[in-house]
Design a protein around this nucleic acid. Structure first.
Lengths: 135, 135
DNA sequence: ACTACCGTACTAGTGCGATAGTACACATTT
DNA sequence: AAATGTGTACTATCGCACTAGTACGGTAGT
């Protein structure tokens, strides 16, 4: 699967899994009715403990994004895609707000912030040129 | 002092202290030669353990931003202000880059990102209207 | 000298994320 | 019926950030 975790960045691994599964749902990489990779399979793939994956899946289930197909696995629920897209958009907006607020606190004014954003934007445009992203 | 910590956001408290002391130095709130608040005083103020503050101060000392005035306290070193300003600028630029990259990955194009940034920017401008910040 | 304050060092205990191993109920496949 | 694979539950253990309390050497004020 498309999931990658980094155990050294402070963010709990199970949260990283939850986040990336949500992104996969939002992107349509897994559609409604599709099964998530099994707990043991994903654990083997990521070289982590099955309990950690199970913890992430439990969270996804309690958020009603995914439902138990008993004996089969966990399947993506109907409204999950739109919900994940909404959550992703809200998360992004919040992070943009945080960073801009930090920029203000650093003494930059709106014009300086705009310059900084534009500089990073053109840098990233070169990097992402001509591909439909979704690593 | 001007420091505020949040023990429930995952970031170690001592790192929050290091970060905010650096910001205070960058902003000139504490100038070269000034003493930092004592370990015990800051610990009492933040309602945390003195060891946690001591840990933060040890980091600042090993980064040569602050030096031991034996028996007196820790004083801000000469080049610290410029160094902290540089670090803060680099940190900010990196965070802007991260967020914009995440925006690209969410499927937004450069124009959409610019719209999102502008929206947050005008929202924050209202909030910060007519004050020299530094909460 | 005495007291008070400074940073530092040390040990012990707590909370939480993660690991490790086992057991269980369920469904599919053979 | 048996084997395999699914998610789940449970206990034990480990590491790390943090708390808690104490002790020590250095400096200033009296």
């Amino acid at each position: 699967m498309f999931i990658r975790v980094d155990s050294s960045n402070g963010v709990p691994v199970y949260e990283q899994i939850v986040r990336q599964v949500k992104f996969a749902i939002a992107d349509g990489v897994v559609a409604a009715g599709d099964l998530l990779p099994s707990v043991r399979e994903l654990a083997r793939e990521l070289a982590i403990n099955p309990n950690t994956v199970a913890r992430a899946y439990r969270d996804l289930q309690s958020q009603e994004l995914v439902e138990l197909a008993s004996g089969i696995g966990l399947s993506v629920r109907g409204g999950a895609k739109r919900e994940c897209q909404t959550q992703r958009r809200q998360l992004l907006q919040a992070r943009v707000g945080q960073v801009l607020e930090e920029a203000f606190r650093s003494g930059l004014d709106a014009a300086a912030v705009r310059r900084l954003v534009d500089a990073e934007l053109t840098r990233l445009e070169k990097q992402f040129m001509g591909n439909g992203n979704h690593e």
